[in-house]
Design a protein around this nucleic acid. Sequence first.
DNA 1: GCTTCATTCAATAGATTGATTGATTGATGT
DNA 2: ACATCAATCAATCAATCTATTGAATGAAGC
Lengths: 218, 218
Amino acid sequence: MTGPDIQNRIFAEIAELARAVGHGHRLMLLEHVAQGERSVERLAELAGLSLANASQHLQQLRRAGLVGTRRDGKRVLYRLADGPVAPLLAALRQLAEHNRADIRELVAGSRQAGVEAISREELLERMREDSVILLDVRPAEEFALGHLPGALNIPGRELERRLAELPAGQEIVAYCRGPYCVFSAEAVALLRANGFRARKLEAGFPDWKAAGLEVEAA
Amino acid sequence: MTGPDIQNRIFAEIAELARAVGHGHRLMLLEHVAQGERSVERLAELAGLSLANASQHLQQLRRAGLVGTRRDGKRVLYRLADGPVAPLLAALRQLAEHNRADIRELVAGSRQAGVEAISREELLERMREDSVILLDVRPAEEFALGHLPGALNIPGRELERRLAELPAGQEIVAYCRGPYCVFSAEAVALLRANGFRARKLEAGFPDWKAAGLEVEAA
DNA sequence: GCTTCATTCAATAGATTGATTGATTGATGT
DNA sequence: ACATCAATCAATCAATCTATTGAATGAAGC
């Protein structure tokens, strides 16, 4: 029980945690789990994985304490754990954006089309003033599991033919699953091309929720 | 270049980054690199690794952009990269402390002896008032590479026989390499046993430096 | 040029991780 | 009890990761 030994054990455990998020499929599953409770089958479909494979990745996430489960009839629902998971993902994202030129490019790519981001703080301010329309471009299913207060839901694919539902005067802020969800960037580009003033929310729904801000459910 | 593909690539890259910190030895090396520039040989010795093994782990860290290198004569010096590496490590630590009971216990173990932690904010306040003695318990070599302004350096092993050097009236704040470095906890326990008022700094030297606060070098 | 020293590279063997397949468990409804 | 469905388990093979060894590189000093 000498000093260095303890430190070795601690670092080994932290490393285990890091490895738990060290696979693209698990990050993808985490992103979907972060939208709300989901069954294994649904998550497998959303992430494009086989059922058994998704199940095993999800179990790894559970062993690491990143997600929790609940049984509902014959299905098992996975949800994000209560611990500070979001900050870890945010830190990873930030470092990745800083270090990897290719990620910066991909992110910049969606900004190229004139897509500016708005921060959570500024959005809160604008919401207080009631001077902004919130547009949730995720599929209806995810919108139903929870969304920003007062948000309008028009899934990305339907946006073009439903533009008329949006009021013309106010600025629109679109948001999606997370910073790498392309729906909101595409939506903003489409809106601007059609004469709207629009920006995308910097983060996505899970970060909003993780920050403890108000969430509405259907 | 469709949406899901881009996302897959981004997540795969982020996962690669996560795996880079997904090994205890690399975390240990990072902790030592975070104290200041070091040669491969020295880092291998500090982490208790063979030279070749340390070299390879360090190269992995470099490929991931977590550390940088510089050649000095025949030696290669590794240093922490400029990107937001510290926040990632902090997020990992926090989640680990939240999730893993054993880490909580180990951390609690060092607090058991009545070791309270002081936050960076409170310390800054106390430093402004000049009402606190800063004690750096790291080896002299690390102290020389950089330390908190005005700190006194008494390495952990020497503390007991050098207690007389410390003024009796003021509170003492001890700090070390990082939150899992046991020197500072042991130091505080020793100081308290000898009638001093003492606390340990919540984080360590690298976090202080990463926060952009003033650093002094010998 | 030759030697020495610090680091990296290359090759190997052992361990761990990942995806697939098919069987098994647990809960529901008939 | 039986059939059905969701999820997990078990076994497998391929791929990746790790530590060790010894050889190769690159920089300094003689």
